[in-house]
Structure formats: structure tokens, C-alpha cells
Design a protein around this nucleic acid. Structure first.
Length: 890
RNA sequence: GGGCGCGUAGCUCAGUGGGAGAGCGCUCGCUUCACACGCGAGAGGUCGCUGGUUCAAUCCCAGCCGCGCCCACCA
């Protein structure tokens, strides 16, 4: 036991011991019912972890440590989500490269030195395999840094179970699951209007959209009436629409009014001519049109927003697409079929100024044209409106038609809602977010991305004699070949030279969305025994192993898992897709519990973000305050609740950890420690106050345990902490006299009480302050506190005398004794005297039962208060007179 | 527009159908034999507003106001 206990260096000291002893190693021989499996969120590997990660991962770690101490064999892996767009973008910037699938693989390629955006050089085009190699190199170094941080924070993960979402094992599982879905008709391909990010040039999913307020302008535009009236233009009342997207007038395929809107009843059923381009479009009605918006007449374009898609589909409108995949206006053949115009020359002339322009450029240009032609009515009115963005994108998403892979989702909606109801949510109200999302789904899940660093779709397509791709006849590899990359691998029965040749084959060029793989994290983590290079599982189709049929593998032991911890912002993505995939592949929930963490907000209650520069780097945090202190702050944030970043809370946590060191030192120093630590055979709690203390402690243990069972780690901490400070300030002060008594008969009971209480407190704090607790445990106990059993209220109560009446009297004795001691302290404090100042006489007036109880604590009270005479007088309520001895120097 | 959560001391937040709490900060005091990262004492609040249920409401119910988040067919 050190002379002056300190927190310094405990992270390194105990981190090394835990690693050496395999303290957190998952024991694969444990029976299924003892296993507690956690589906750890794999952090995105694209730079650095932030304070929010420390926050939520600490929550999970406290639960993991609690369960381990409860005797569960905890399956607690770490994963790295290194698959996907954020990594690609980071690699592009870091190395100054760009992936071009047309470039051949260069085995001797060396990453450019001093590349990157800051070098101001044009990015170097490299092949997809070279690009993927760079992604792997960069993520590897990030992952080492992440692991170091987690180890310093004291996460009790089993590092031998680490997986990555781009690793061969994840790819194999992801592809195997996809092929199963394809075989069962749950995955399909479709050419359809798709949400599209024009910068990344990839499809995106509904779940990856977010709204952003953007300034825009509302333009009132005149459409001439076509048909009979066209012969007599002066007679024809024009059709007025309002739009924020005038650049899409050329893509207009109809005008719509509400069926009950009498103002436009005369128009409906007729036709109108688009301004500038002179295209005939029908005027129709649809109930989704809102009469009080704009003029009540709306232009349908292919496609300005998701509502346009609805109208286009429901009304069977044609496609007149203007926007290309790069977000620029396409060159379209005015006058050709589908592009008819009442004035082809004028249409070509107008459009000539728009073609090749971006959306914003084209909008400015067409507004000038409309103004010049008189078709723009009034000035554009500035408006602020919500625009849909890809959450990682910088320009609004567009809707373009493309071929994509989908997983059937809508038809499983009811079943998914049932699954959501079966899942135990912590806190329970988070379930509403899941249900809102499932109920609001409008389409199946688009999982294909036109990117490079991801899991490829494991299919090829035959080419017919004319070189056309036969998309409806995909060629799948046999399971033993997985994972495959169809851009380099060749399907069975073909030669490499046949790639791209008529009668040959092509590989699917796309990769899966990152969620399409991370939605399988329970299965990926649970197949750690397969190894990275194991062949595909035997048997076609779905995943083998889960469900336990014959398989003695790891997966059968850990799946379905016990706990999915995650933050609330990814309920609609990660949580939802994991439930969906587990439903489709296993027809069951992937876990029994979902524990949802809040976010870390900056002190202004805004979400922390790098752009604001208010982010504190986690490692710096741990170095300054210590891991236990940071964990204390995190664990004080209640489940599901956003918490402001607060360094002051960390200081409080640090004080608590230091206090635990010192209290343990006081309690244990020079105290005989029997073998086994707490209690020698035959030892008894002979003093009523000691029994009362242990009884109270049993109540705290019960509350902490109940709280943890409900995943309310914060309450467990709060109860333990409150008790602990009271214990130090009141109980320990009260019994110091007996603690140091020369007569072993007198001190024995305190010794047992201190050993018993410290043992319980050190274990109660262990999930929160793992380093300080391990340190104090090591002073007097064998083995790790983190493998010690969680304290049990029953064991503590076994030390007490039976009899409720006696327990109540002793509990009252502790209460009254502490109350009187407080009065004595108050008198000394108000007299500005030290706490050890002697007291000649204390007269306590109180009710008879309380005075009787006080008698049980009178001896300790006299010693703690330095009281000469203690008188007990009958009274109505507690009143204490204190006569201090004269100060020596007064 | 819909849903969820929140609104308690200057700050951060617990809490309960019957006495309004903690930590930090502030004031005053104490070198008490584990700890000055300590100990003791104290000041400080119409528990968002308005109704209702109840003997009794900070807590339960309704409405409103404010904040945050999620969702929405935002032309």
C-alpha cells in the first residue's frame, strides 16, 4: 500500500496487467446461458474518435463489467467500420489520389508522398485495387490509434475478437447473406428514379438523407394554354404555377391541381405549353396537391423532388430527364420523340444556354430568359425551405434514373414493427423512433453504391451476342469462393479474356452501402472463429451456424446477442437494418436489449462538431483528467439523455477516485487481513452501529443491482456515490475511536465492518472507476476486482442479527447518532473552533425511542465529538445543547 | 404538420402524491492522527404557465408557452 496513493500511471499499470492476464478474454467453453454478448458499435474509421465516443462506449463498458462480475461470460468485441465513403474521402485527401476503375492495377504502385489537397496538385488517377490498398493502409494506422485510446479508457473488450467491416470475413458474410437474399427473392435489381448525390455520384438511401434549411426563391411562372385556346391567345387565361426549381421547366411532364379546386377546374383535362420550350403537357388533378400553396397549380418534373416521383408513378407520366449523374444538365434532342416542341428552334436556343450547366447556374440563366420572355410573373420571392441532402454530402440530392440493388423492406413492415415491440429498449421511449421510421418508409432499401471501397456485389452478368448486359440473369459464385471481387475475379465457366466481350461476361460494378455490411455486425463478430481466410460455409444460401442446429461454432453461442448499445441518431440506419437483416436471414431479433445513448453537447447545448472547433480530443481529455474521471463524467449521463460536455464533472470524478484510494488506505492500513480478505471464521459484527452500516450498505447494493439490471448505470453510480460520501464523512468519522482502540475486542467489529464495506464499495465502483478500484483491491485481495463477484445484499445481511425490530432500532441509532454529531459539529463550526475541540457537555432532547436508540451509539458519539458528558433528556423533537470547553488561548 | 424528450438553486443535473435535494460556484470557518483532489457550517429556488383530479400536486391529467431531437408528399 503506497504512502500517498495516487491515480497517476494507473492506466498503464493495470492496462498491462489485464492484457497479460487475459482478464477480459472471452471463454468460448462457457455454456450458452452464461454468455452475455454485446454487439459493439464499430466506430467509423475516418480520422479520429471524439468525446461522444468516449461517452457512449463508457456506458456500454460499465454494463459489460457489471455483467462480468455477475458471473456472465461477456462477449465484448471491438469492430472498425472502415468500409465506405468516409474512408474513401479521407484517402483521396490524404494521398491526393482518385479512383478510376478504368485504370489497370499497378502492383508496384507507391503512394504519392506529400500529396493531398494542400499540395494543390491534381489528384492522381489510380486503379480500384490500388485505391483499396491505400484505404487499407490508412485505416490500419487509424485503427491502432483507436485501440490505444480505448485501452487507455479502460474498455474491457476482448481484443482478440476485433473485426473490420472491410475484412475478408465481413465481406464473405455480407456477400453470403446477399446471395441468400437474392436466391429467396428478397434482393432485386431495378432501374428506377433513385436518390442521387451528384458530388459522390452514387445512389443514396432514404435513411441517409437529412434536411437542411437553405435559402431559395419562389418563381411565379406562366404556362400558356394549349389546345383550342391556342388559336386565340388573348382569350386564353394562362396557367400560373410557382416553383423553386425553374431550371427543371424543360423536364415538366404535367401540371396538377387539386380535384376539388374550382379555380383550376377549367384547366384540368386540357393541356398547357411550357414556357421557352413549348412542350405540351397535360393538366391533371391529384389529391396530394395543396390548394393553398402557391397558385394551387403545380408543375410535375422528372424529377424535382420525391413528390414528383409519387405523381409520376401514380399518374403514369412519361420521363423527360434533364439532369445527369454529375448534376449538370444533359444535352437533350429537342424536336425528337419525347422532346416535341411547338417551337423547336426556340427550345434549342433557350436550352443551349443551359446545357452542361450545374443546377444553380442553369437556374440563374433560365430566370433571365423567363424574365425576358415575360413568362416570369413578378420578382422571385426569397424563401427559406428545407432541402434534402445526403448526410455526408454538400449539394442537395437529385433524383436520377439508374439501375440499383434493393432489399425488400416494405412488405416486412408489420413483422418489423412486431420485432421492435419485442426488443427491450433502454430507455423505453426510444422505441417510438424505430416505429416512426418503419411506419414512414416509402420504398425498399437501396443498397448499391457507385463507389469503390466497399463490399462488391458478388455477381456477374452474361453478355449476349450483341454485347448487351443480361441483368436479369446474374451469375453467382459458389459459396466456397466468397468473398469475390467480380471486377477482377472471373465467374466459373468463363475465361478472363471474355470480360466485356460479346458472349462473355461483366462484373457488377457497384459496392454495397456500408450499412448493408454493418447491419450484419452480430454475425460478423460472432464468426470470429472462422478466421479471415476460411472458406465460405458449406450449404448454399443463408448463414450457417446461427440457430444452433448442429453447429458448435461461436455464432451459435453468442447469437442472438444480449445487448445492442448505440446512439439514438442511428436507430433508423444501423439498428433498423440490423433488425431487418436478422429477420430476413434468421427470422428472429438479433438481440434482446437495445441501450440507447445520448449525445455529447457542447456547453451551449449544441451538438459538438469539428467545424465549430469546440471538439476536445479524447486522448488529451484522458491525459488531463485520468480515465476514471472521464468515465465518471460519462457514466453520469443517464441512458438516452444528451449531456453537455463538462470538465467540472470530470474533476468531481477524479476527487471520487482519489477519495476511494484514501478511504481504502485508512480502512485497511495496519488492519489484520484474514485469508480471503473480508472475514475470518467466527468473526461477528458485535456493535449495533456496525450492523446498521452493513444493513444500509445492503440496501445500496440492492438499488445498484436493480438499476444495472435495467441498464441504468447512471443511477447505480449515483446511489453508490451518495452512500460512499456519507460513509466517509459520517460513519467512518464516528467509528474512528473504536478503529484505533488498543483493545482488540473493541476494534474487531469495526475491522470487520470496514473490510466488509470497503470490499463491497470497491466492487460497486469497479464498473465506473476500473483503475482506482483495481488498485485498491490489489492492496488486500487476490486476483482482479473485475473478475470478483458482484456484491450480494444477501451476503451482507447474513452478517446481521435476525429480527426486524432490532434492525429498526439499530438503524435508528445510526440515524440519531449522526444527527447529533452534526449538531455538535455545527456548534464547533459556528464557534470557529476546530472539530477536535473538546466539549464539556452535550444535552440531547428527543423522544423516548430516539433517545433509547442514541444510547447504542453514545460511545462512538462521545469519541467522535470529543464529548465529556452526554445527557439525554425527554423532549418532543431533537434539540441539542452543546457546551464547548473554553479555548486554551482565549 | 405528426411523434418523442426536456423545462427544479447562478451552472450541471437528481428526485418523489404529504418535509424541496446533490455537486460545482459563492460566503464563513477548520493544518481533525486516510484524504487541503480534504473537513465543517451557511446563503441561494413562486420545482415553465393555466386549469383539473385529490384531504394534499414539483410529482397524476388536460391545455398553453419555450427548448431540443426524430419524422413528413417542404411545388
Amino acid at each position: 500500500m503506497p504512502e500517498r496513493p495516487s491515480l497517476e500511471g494507473l492506466e498503464q499499470k493495470w492496462g498491462a496487467v489485464w492484457e497479460r492476464d487475459g482478464t477480459y478474454r472471452f471463454d468460448r467453453s462457457a455454456p450458452r446461458e452464461r454468455v452475455f454478448a454485446i454487439d459493439t458499435p464499430p466506430p467509423t474509421v475516418s480520422g479520429s474518435l471524439h468525446v461522444g465516443h468516449v461517452f457512449s462506449f463508457t456506458h456500454t463498458d460499465t454494463v459489460a463489467r457489471y455483467q462480468r462480475m455477475r458471473g456472465r461470460e461477456v462477449f465484448y468485441p471491438m469492430g472498425w467500420d472502415d468500409n465506405g465513403l468516409p474512408t474513401e474521402r479521407r484517402v483521396q485527401n490524404h494521398y491526393g489520389v482518385r479512383c478510376d476503375p478504368a485504370v489497370p492495377y499497378n502492383p508496384d504502385f507507391v503512394a504519392p508522398v506529400g500529396g493531398g489537397a494542400d499540395a494543390g496538385k491534381e489528384p492522381v488517377s489510380i486503379s480500384r485495387p490500388n485505391f483499396v490498398e491505400l484505404c487499407l493502409t490508412l485505416t490500419e494506422s487509424d485503427e491502432r490509434a483507436f485501440e490505444q485510446l480505448w485501452r487507455t479508457l479502460g474498455l474491457s473488450v476482448d481484443w482478440s475478437l476485433t473485426y473490420t467491416t472491410i475484412g475478408r470475413r465481413a465481406q464473405r458474410l455480407s456477400q453470403r447473406s446477399f446471395l441468400g437474399l437474392l436466391e429467396r427473392g428478397q434482393a432485386y435489381q431495378l432501374e428506377a428514379p433513385t436518390l442521387w448525390d451528384v458530388d459522390f455520384q452514387t445512389a443514396v438511401a432514404q435513411a441517409e438523407l437529412e434536411d437542411r434549411e437553405r435559402p431559395g426563391a419562389m418563381h411565379r411562372v406562366r404556362f400558356a394554354r394549349a389546345g383550342d385556346c391556342a388559336a386565340d391567345p388573348d382569350d386564353a387565361e394562362p396557367a400560373l404555377i410557382e416553383t423553386t426549381r425553374p431550371e427543371l421547366i424543360g423536364a415538366c411532364v404535367a401540371l396538377l391541381a387539386h380535384p376539388d379546386d374550382e379555380r383550376h377546374a377549367g384547366l384540368v383535362g386540357g393541356e398547357a405549353l411550357t414556357p421557352l420550350f413549348g412542350t405540351r403537357v397535360p393538366v391533371l388533378s391529384h389529391p396530394l396537391v395543396e390548394r393553398d400553396k402557391g397558385t394551387g397549380l403545380v408543375m410535375v418534373c422528372t424529377f424535382g423532388d420525391l413528390t414528383d416521383v409519387t405523381w409520376w408513378r401514380e399518374l403514369g407520366l412519361p420521363v423527360r430527364a434533364l439532369l445527369g449523374q454529375d448534376g449538370r444538365l444533359l444535352d437533350v434532342p429537342w424536336g425528337a420523340p419525347g422532346w416535341e416542341s411547338a417551337d423547336v428552334e426556340r427550345a434549342r436556343a433557350s436550352y443551349g444556354e443551359l446545357v452542361g450547366r450545374t443546377v444553380n447556374q442553369a437556374r440563374r440563366a433560365i430566370v433571365e430568359q423567363l424574365a425576358a420572355s415575360g413568362d416570369l410573373i413578378g420578382e422571385p420571392q426569397p424563401v427559406s425551405r428545407a432541402v434534402k441532402f445526403f448526410e455526408k454530402g454538400e449539394r442537395p440530392v437529385e433524383i436520377v434514373t439508374s439501375r440499383q440493388w434493393f432489399i425488400r423492406t416494405l412488405e416486412h413492415r408489420e413483422r418489423l414493427l412486431e420485432r421492435g415491440a419485442q426488443l427491450r429498449w433502454h430507455p423505453p421511449y426510444m422505441r417510438a423512433r424505430f416505429e416512426d421510421w418503419v411506419s414512414g418508409l416509402t420504398g425498399d432499401w437501396c443498397i448499391s453504391r457507385q463507389r469503390f471501397f466497399g463490399v462488391p456485389f458478388p455477381v456477374w452478368y452474361p453478355l449476349d451476342a450483341g454485347g448487351a448486359v443480361l441483368y436479369d440473369q446474374p451469375i453467382a459464385p459458389t459459396p466456397e469462393r466468397l468473398p469475390v471481387d467480380p471486377s477482377t475475379d472471373v465467374p466459373d465457366g468463363y475465361e478472363p479474356a471474355q470480360r466485356g466481350q460479346p458472349g462473355g461476361f461483366v462484373g457488377d460494378p457497384d459496392v454495397m452501402d456500408t450499412w448493408a455490411t454493418s447491419s450484419l455486425t452480430p454475425q460478423i463478430a460472432g464468426t470470429a472463429d472462422e478466421g479471415e481466410d476460411a472458406p465460405g460455409a458449406p450449404g448454399a444460401g443463408g448463414l450457417a451456424g446461427a440457430g444452433g442446429e448442429g453447429g458448435g461454432g461461436l455464432l451459435a453461442k453468442v447469437f442472438p446477442m444480449d445487448l445492442r448499445p448505440q446512439a439514438h441518431d442511428i436507430i433508423r440506419t444501423w439498428l433498423f437494418t440490423t433488425v431487418l437483416r436478422s429477420q430476413l436471414d434468421h427470422d428472429e431479433l438479433p438481440w434482446a436489449n437495445a441501450a440507447i445513448s445520448g449525445w455529447v453537447l457542447d456547453p451551449d447545448r449544441k451538438k459538438m462538431s469539428k467545424s465549430k472547433g469546440n471538439v476536445v480530443t479524447p486522448m488529451h481529455l484522458l491525459e488531463e483528467h485520468g480515465a476514471d474521471a472521464a468515465r465518471y463524467w460519462a457514466a453520469s449521463g443517464r441512458p438516452g439523455t444528451d449531456t453537455a460536455f463538462d470538465a467540472k464533472q470530470m474533476k468531481v470524478g477524479r476527487k471520487l477516485a482519489v477519495k476511494l484510494l484514501n478511504a481504502s488506505k485508512f480502512a485497511l492500513a495496519d488492519l489484520p487481513i484474514p485469508p480471503g480478505g473480508e472475514r475470518a471464521p467466527g468473526e461477528q459484527l458485535t456493535h449495533p452501529l456496525d450492523r446498521a452500516l452493513v444493513a444500509r450498505l445492503a440496501g445500496v447494493v440492492r438499488e445498484a443491482t436493480d438499476s444495472f439490471e435495467r441498464y441504468d448505470y447512471a443511477r447505480a453510480l449515483e446511489r453508490t456515490e451518495t452512500f460512499f460520501w456519507w460513509y466517509c464523512d459520517s460513519y467512518v468519522e464516528l467509528v474512528k475511536g473504536r478503529r484505533y482502540d488498543a483493545d482488540p475486542q473493541v476494534s474487531a467489529s469495526v475491522g470487520l465492518s470496514l473490510r466488509t464495506s470497503l470490499s463491497a464499495l470497491q466492487r460497486l465502483f469497479a464498473p465506473f472507476l476500473p483503475f482506482a478500484c483495481e488498485e485498491v483491491w490489489s492492496w488486500w485481495r487476490e486476483g482482479s476486482v473485475h473478475r470478483a463477484p458482484w456484491p450480494a445484499a444477501e451476503e451482507l445481511e447474513a452478517l446481521l442479527e435476525p429480527g426486524a425490530e432490532q434492525r429498526a432500532r439499530e438503524e435508528l441509532a445510526l440515524t440519531v447518532t449522526v444527527e447529533v454529531l452534526a449538531e455538535v459539529r455545527k456548534a464547533k463550526s459556528q464557534a470557529r473552533r476546530p472539530m477536535r475541540a473538546p466539549v464539556t457537555r452535550v444535552a440531547v432532547r428527543d423522544t423516548e425511542p430516539r433517545l433509547a436508540a442514541l444510547e447504542l451509539g453514545a460511545g462512538d458519539l462521545r469519541q467522535a465529538g470529543a464529548i465529556e458528558t452526554l445527557e439525554r433528556l425527554p423532549g418532543e423533537e431533537l434539540a441539542v445543547e452543546v457546551e464547548l470547553a473554553p479555548a486554551e488561548d482565549a
